[in-house]
Design a protein around this nucleic acid. Structure first.
Lengths: 188, 188, 188, 188
DNA sequence: AATTAAACGAGACGGTACGTCTCGTCTTATT
DNA sequence: AATAAGACGAGACGTACCGTCTCGTTTAATT
């Protein structure tokens, strides 16, 4: 039971303004040009109001991910009936996140954020590996679940991240190859 | 034809002192506490001497990786005769890189460096996925080479990186499961 | 005619807690480390309770002076029969106010408070130049009163303040010399 | 003998810009609205450049006083032949320093600065009590010098400061009375 | 007794300034 | 010409207070 306390209550308007500002700046300039001061300025908020609720910029971003503000609808897989091509298409979409107009690319920024903040790391993986992927992947692998499925999901997404980090190109054929390597070759 | 030039030539002593200092600070405090100023101080070198030869701290680290100063002998796989357990052991070793005494863990720092610097990203993957891994993996997969082998290598290493980023635990059994998922189940 | 009003009246307990806290912090850390927030914290009082009754920290201190909490019994002169040495002793006592264990010295703090707040300035002079000094000084000067006496009193106290501000030393002999300069030389 | 050092030398342009800015802001807004940040902004200088050479705003102001930028020609006494009226006129001029267009008055600010900074206190007294006053005062008192003269000078200036602090009015007649009290009555 | 309204404690809010740290550039004297 | 040293303008860091503004609770005088 929470002990009641008098006094003003946390301002939801400020919270939203901060997350909005953080997301906008993150998209525009990337994670490591993101500053607490910049967020406060853009949000029209005192710095202390950010520090009061989040210990670091990483945790602000983590909360934004949790609310689905950074990945948008990228979490949902297409459904053409062919799980193999659906998975490849979704991975390609994830991969191309890395190229954003200015800044270092959203995917690199997410990875940088994850590297710097435990909470962001946890949430990023949880978001990306959300239900839709697991479900479809499980189907494609003949109903596998548990650690075996987790390993496959991590391998799929991890490979994409690794190639994005290395600035390797990754064509549609490569993506199909990757899916096959993990899901198994197409059955005739 | 090289145009002749008078005056002193680049100081190898300074170059080494800078790389040594960068590596030491990187290991002690992690990538994002690493500063140009700190490197110069520790190396006993003017800041300009760093800026003259490297555009950013990411590129200093990239050169250190290239010279094998950051991963040490972690590039070499054990050889017990059983490729499956050798690969799992090597991946576990890579994964445990993430826990360093202080700072954020070497693996997180390497990932942060890779996210922030194209050159570091390229070199990091090239280093980790060096010949030893490819060779052994190829053997374990029955002589596969080319894009098919690359996909498997990326999946293996990518999965480890993703779990490290998410601060997920990753036991020896999980690692074997992962290897099996990609290499294929153990043949009797 | 006061318009009648329901509701609680001003809390004397809060008023005293605030003045106590202000005096304690003033003595410990000096006028310019004194903060409204610190007073509220120490007094166990909401900030608004201070702002409701005083417009600034200077006015809180002014009220504390008015109630004799800052100068204590320093307002009273010794009485040895010899007005000349009594005055010198009292001035020396005032001067040594300037050396307090920590902080900038009570006298400097009082002067800073007076410089920053009109009300404090008025009260400080009124307090220091209170009846006892005027009476004794008048006697020593052969019954002079009015502007002539005021000028002498201001000269005496002002000289001490000026030397305190300049961190000049001021020995007992100097103090006698000062008294003589204003009161006139000792009559045989 | 100073040990030789390579590297850039202190920028005189920056030093002057800082002192100019400090003096301007001091005059416009008073000592306690004076901020390091404001000085840096106005001077077009990094904050570190101020902190590199002065530990506090008090010391910046102290240096400005030392260079005669704050009191201007107020240090010089008029010379009408009558020392008594010259002294009174000069004291009146000093007193009216306290009324500046906006802010708290230059004299209050100087006193606040002196209360907060030992160096400023020392320099302020040295500046105000400079040679011209001492010389004229000595003449008016029949050639007195040494501690006896110092006491008189401190009494004169101290009385003016005390009345300024207390926001007491101080007319020309009062000033003559003060001079007489210390210098002695006019000889016929 | 019930109503009403202000005083209270607590503390969140948008701000400003603090003093420190690092950035990348520029200026010295030395080698 | 490259170096070690480090001053410079710039600006972010995380903290401390400012003065204002809710909150929910407590306390009186008025109904």
């Amino acid at each position: 039971m929470a002990l009641p306390r008098s006094g003003p209550v946390r301002s939801e308007a400020a919270r939203l303004a901060i997350l909005d500002a953080a997301v906008a700046l993150f998209a525009e300039r990337g994670y490591d040009h993101l500053t607490m001061e910049g967020i406060a300025r853009r949000a029209g908020v005192g710095k202390q109001t950010i520090y009061r609720w989040w210990p670091s910029k990483g945790d602000v971003i983590a909360e934004a991910i949790l609310e689905g503000r950074l990945l948008g609808n990228r979490r949902e897989l297409p459904d053409t009936g062919d799980a193999r091509t659906d998975l490849a298409a979704w991975l390609t979409d994830l991969f191309t996140l890395r190229a954003s107009p200015e800044g270092e690319g959203l995917l690199h920024s997410l990875v940088a954020a994850a590297a710097g903040s435990a909470e962001t790391g946890r949430r990023l993986r949880a978001e990306i590996l959300a239900a839709p992927l697991n479900e479809r992947l499980s189907q494609a692998m003949g109903g596998v679940t548990g650690p075996r499925l987790d390993a496959a999901a991590d391998a799929l997404v991890g490979a994409v991240i690794l190639r994005a980090l290395s600035r390797e190109e990754f064509g549609g054929d490569d993506m199909l190859l990757l899916v096959d390597a993990i899901v198994g070759p197409p059955r005739h």
